[in-house]
Simulated assay, not measured.
Amino acid sequence: MTMITQLQSSLMQHKTRFDVLNHAASMTTREAARRAGIPPQQMAKPVILDDFQGHWLMAVIPASRHVDLEKVHKLTHRHWRLVHERDFGKRFGDCDVGAIPAVGNLFGLETLVDQSLTEQPDIYFESGRHDELVHMSGKHYMALIPEAKSGRFCE
């Protein structure tokens, strides 16, 4: 099953109301938001972190912000470093590099969501492709990742 099919199956299994928004291909999450005409603070950008011991974390932040690793450390009581896309591409199946869906549990990853995203009425995230976004309510997004923790950890 392709990642896009797996994502759609998961969304339907959770009875999540969503739609898919096509846009001109883009190479960054912020550019995808711009091309799709959506506010970057509603665009969920996954950032993959490693705790220096092989444990990975998906930190989900608005496309308009950056992860503050010190704040993530304070929330999790572990030190983290950014994982480069070239180092994790295979883990995310057939997703285009840089277009990973911001749904960590789909990949078996612990997920941390910045508090500012939980306050958004609508959330958009990459579908696994550089030319389409998944759109849903913020409430449905958080219900899709029930194990996710939240806190303020971006700048």
Rank of each mutant, 00 (worst) to 15 (best):
S127Q: 09
M142V: 03
P146S: 05
I145S: 04
T118Q: 07
M142Q: 06
A143K: 14
V134S: 05
T118N: 04
S116T: 13
V113D: 01
H140P: 03
A143H: 14
E147K: 11
V113E: 02
P121L: 06
M136Y: 03
M136N: 04
D114S: 10
F107S: 13
D131T: 07
E110D: 12
V134D: 01
K139H: 12
F125H: 14
F125L: 13
R129Y: 08
A143Q: 15
E132T: 14
L112C: 08
D131N: 15
F107N: 10
H140Q: 15
E126K: 15
H130V: 08
E119R: 04
S116H: 08
D114E: 11
A143V: 07
H135S: 02
V113G: 01
S150F: 01
S127P: 09
G108L: 13
T118P: 03
H135G: 00
F125D: 00
A148E: 00
D131S: 13
V134R: 06
Q115H: 11
I145P: 00
Y124E: 07
F125Y: 12
E132D: 14
Q120L: 06
K139I: 11
G128Y: 09
Q115E: 13
Y141Q: 06
F125V: 09
K139V: 11
M136D: 02
S137K: 08
M142W: 05
K139W: 09
I123L: 14
